[in-house]
Simulated assay, not measured.
Amino acid sequence: AQLAVSITGFAGPGSEDDEEGLVHFALADTTGALTHREEHFGPIGRDGVRIAALRAALDMLHEKLNLSA
């Protein structure tokens, strides 16, 4: 693989100390370059956070591939 994406976060629901919809992304390439992205999607539900996270990850890949072209 030339690129790798990692996603972690909290889709909710949770306690009052948890930020529902907080998601962190990392994108790495074969040179070792690492890109981090943090999103605060808010309380849009577990499925909503999953879809929003997928879109954000695909956006990161798209941006990286366009810069590499």
Results as ranks from 00 to 15, higher is better:
61 L>I: 14
3 L>H: 08
56 A>D: 01
4 A>Y: 02
40 H>S: 14
69 A>G: 08
16 E>N: 04
46 R>L: 05
49 V>Q: 00
54 L>N: 07
35 T>H: 00
20 E>H: 03
31 T>G: 03
5 V>T: 06
53 A>F: 07
33 A>C: 09
42 G>R: 06
59 D>Y: 01
56 A>I: 03
27 L>V: 03
9 G>L: 10
34 L>P: 04
37 R>F: 07
3 L>Y: 11
47 D>H: 10
69 A>H: 09
47 D>W: 06
34 L>A: 07
22 L>K: 15
18 D>N: 14
43 P>V: 12
37 R>V: 02
18 D>T: 11
38 E>S: 10
56 A>W: 01
24 H>Y: 14
4 A>C: 04
13 P>A: 10
49 V>F: 01
60 M>L: 12
34 L>C: 14
15 S>T: 12
23 V>K: 11
53 A>G: 10
9 G>T: 05
69 A>C: 12
20 E>D: 10
55 R>S: 11
9 G>R: 09
36 H>L: 14
35 T>P: 00
68 S>E: 10
32 G>H: 04
66 N>W: 13
40 H>P: 03
2 Q>S: 10
30 T>V: 03
12 G>F: 00
2 Q>R: 07
37 R>G: 02
21 G>M: 13
5 V>Q: 01
53 A>T: 01
4 A>K: 05
34 L>I: 13
28 A>F: 00
32 G>C: 08
18 D>Q: 15
26 A>K: 10
8 T>K: 12
58 L>Y: 08
42 G>D: 06
51 I>M: 15
51 I>L: 15
47 D>V: 14
11 A>T: 10
48 G>S: 11
45 G>D: 00
46 R>M: 06
29 D>P: 02
62 H>Q: 06
18 D>G: 04
28 A>K: 02
36 H>V: 07
2 Q>P: 08
61 L>T: 11
20 E>F: 03
50 R>A: 11
9 G>E: 07
51 I>F: 13
49 V>T: 00
20 E>V: 15
42 G>T: 04
50 R>V: 01
9 G>V: 07
44 I>K: 13
14 G>M: 12
33 A>M: 09
31 T>H: 03
12 G>A: 01
46 R>N: 07
8 T>A: 14
63 E>N: 10
57 A>R: 00
7 I>A: 09
23 V>C: 08
7 I>G: 04
11 A>N: 05
30 T>A: 13
52 A>P: 09
37 R>S: 06
46 R>I: 02
67 L>D: 12
24 H>I: 05
7 I>F: 06
11 A>E: 10
13 P>T: 08
14 G>N: 10
3 L>E: 02
42 G>E: 09
48 G>K: 11
69 A>F: 04
34 L>F: 01
